[in-house]
């Protein structure tokens, strides 16, 4: 694959290039929808396609109108505010509980490990609509439906599986003799945890937290059912916008969110490298 041998037959040669073209097309399919909305969001006319002016790179075809609308419209501003009010708290809860549980699960003797793991991972597997329906029924019974804390708790529950998976993955390669060495040198368990274990598993914890954050930040089904108009988040606002009258402002929001996910992706990649370096693996 990593190069065509000089003795390749014409069939092999055409297959080699044909395969690359197929792959290029699939990559195009993957990335094109995300890239294309970026220029479209600068359209000066309320259309969802490229106008003649845009294709001719005429400055008159471009404008920041959609962005202006996003930053001045109170609906969108409220939605951003709500998203940033809910996601960090949900992330904090999910990361705190999740990290503790992952440390517990990675001990060598855990009774009912399989069952516990299955229960803790289940929020990731159960279809969102079912979680949303169940939470709607149950949270209305206990008076949490339509409240800020109802949304935060449900999002925290949805985010924990990601924290458990990432932290457990980091703990698998954690050298247990380090904690034993710390204990041997007289450190109590709490000190050992914060001074030895925590710094080493930190990359896993942070990437788990990022997953939990993005889960909450991107979640719409559960918040639609559990939340009320006071907890209208950014995805909810986008969902209503897409379902009712689709306005070009959506494109500017989408572009900003793509930029946001690029930042997250970069952070995660840097963390992964750091984690590999800490573990003594060669950087990828």
């Amino acid at each position: 694959m990593s190069g065509l041998p000089p003795y390749a037959s014409p069939v092999q040669r055409s297959w080699y290039y044909g395969f690359r073209i197929i792959c290029a097309l699939i990559f195009f399919f993957l990335i094109f929808p995300i890239i294309v909305i970026i220029p479209l969001s600068f359209n000066s006319l309320p259309f969802f396609t490229f106008t003649k002016e845009m294709l001719a790179f005429d400055p008159a075809g471009y404008s920041l109108k959609n962005y202006e609308d996003f930053f001045t419209n109170s609906d969108w501003n409220n939605a951003v505010y709500n998203s940033f009010r809910i996601a960090p708290v949900a992330t904090l809860l999910a990361t705190g509980f999740g990290t503790l549980a992952a440390i517990g699960l990675s001990q060598s003797h855990v009774p009912f490990r399989g069952t516990i793991m299955a229960i803790l991972i289940s929020p990731m597997i159960v279809p969102l609509i079912i979680s949303a329906a169940g939470m709607y029924f149950f949270y209305s019974r206990i008076g949490l439906q339509g409240t800020y804390w109802g949304v935060v708790l449900s999002h925290a529950a949805l985010g924990t599986p990601f924290v458990i998976i990432t932290v457990t993955a980091t703990l698998v390669s954690f050298d247990k003799s380090l904690t034993r060495a710390a204990a041997n040198l007289g450190a109590d368990p709490v000190r050992t945890f914060f001074k030895v274990q925590m710094p080493l598993i930190m990359p896993g914890v942070v990437s788990g937290a990022l997953f939990a954050f993005i889960t909450s930040f991107d979640e719409v089904v559960v918040v639609l059912f559990v939340g009320s108009s006071g907890q209208k988040t950014l995805p909810w606002q986008m969902f209503t916008g897409l379902r009712e009258q689709i306005s070009p402002t959506i494109l500017s929001v989408a572009t900003l969110m793509v930029a946001f996910s690029i930042v997250l992706l970069t952070t995660l990649e840097l963390l992964r490298r750091r984690s590999e370096r800490l573990r003594g693996l060669s950087p990828g």
Binding site: I31, P33, I34, I37, T49, P235, I246, L251, M257, S261
Partner: peptide
Amino acid sequence: MVLLPFWTSLLVRTSAWKV
């Protein structure tokens, strides 16, 4: 190019297709 779509909001991708 695989991870960017993976990390992009579901609603962003859906609205891109809608457009």
